[in-house]
Computed example of a mutant assay.
Amino acid sequence: MTKSAGSRRHLPSSPFNRQAPASPPPEQFAVGDRVSHDQFGLGRVIGVEGEQAVLIDFSGRQGRILSPFSKLTKL
């Protein structure tokens, strides 16, 4: 008699039984926030497109940064 793979017992300490950690929610930005970008430097938020993107003025040069905002930090 063979056991099916679905009836196997998984130990709580098993490294294969762990769930992926939940990703933190994307940072919220508002118009007027001062920000720092790893590549473009210091800037100010001039527009917010929900949680998808922000528009930023980097000293006369504008950029649209998409979510997730991994290289963008609020000051």
Rank of each mutant, 00 (worst) to 15 (best):
F40Q: 03
I56L: 03
S13C: 09
I56V: 15
F69Q: 12
K74H: 13
P24A: 07
P12K: 15
R9E: 03
R18Q: 15
P15N: 09
E49Q: 11
G47N: 12
A30P: 00
A22Y: 01
S13G: 13
L75C: 01
S14G: 06
S4C: 01
Q28I: 04
H37D: 07
R61Y: 04
Q52S: 13
A22Q: 13
I65Q: 10
H37Q: 01
Q28P: 00
V54E: 07
S7R: 13
F40I: 00
L66R: 15
S7K: 14
F58D: 04
E51N: 12
R61A: 13
G47R: 14
G50H: 07
G60W: 10
R18I: 15
G32F: 00
G43C: 09
Q19E: 11
L66A: 15
L66T: 14
P12N: 11
K74W: 04
F40C: 01
L11M: 06
G47H: 10
K74C: 08
I56E: 01
V45K: 06
A22E: 12
G41Q: 08
G60M: 10
G43T: 08
E27D: 05
P21W: 03
R61F: 07
L72C: 09
P21Y: 03
L55Q: 12
F16L: 13
A30L: 01
L11K: 14
L75E: 11
N17I: 04
S67M: 14
D57F: 03
P68H: 12
I56C: 04
G41K: 05
K71I: 00
S70H: 14
Q52D: 11
E27N: 02
S36G: 00
Q62S: 14
A20C: 02
R9G: 03
V31N: 00
T2L: 04
R9W: 09
R34M: 00
Q19K: 14
V45Y: 06
E27P: 06
G63E: 13
H37G: 01
R9C: 01
H10C: 01
L72W: 09
A22R: 14
V45D: 05
G63D: 03
V48T: 13
A5R: 13
D57G: 10
Q39M: 08
D33G: 01
L75F: 05
Q19D: 11
V48N: 10
I56Y: 03
F16S: 07
Q28C: 00
A5F: 06
H10L: 06
A20I: 06
Q62W: 02
Q39C: 02
R9Y: 08
S59G: 05
G41A: 06
G50I: 06
A5L: 10
L42G: 00
I65E: 08
P68L: 08
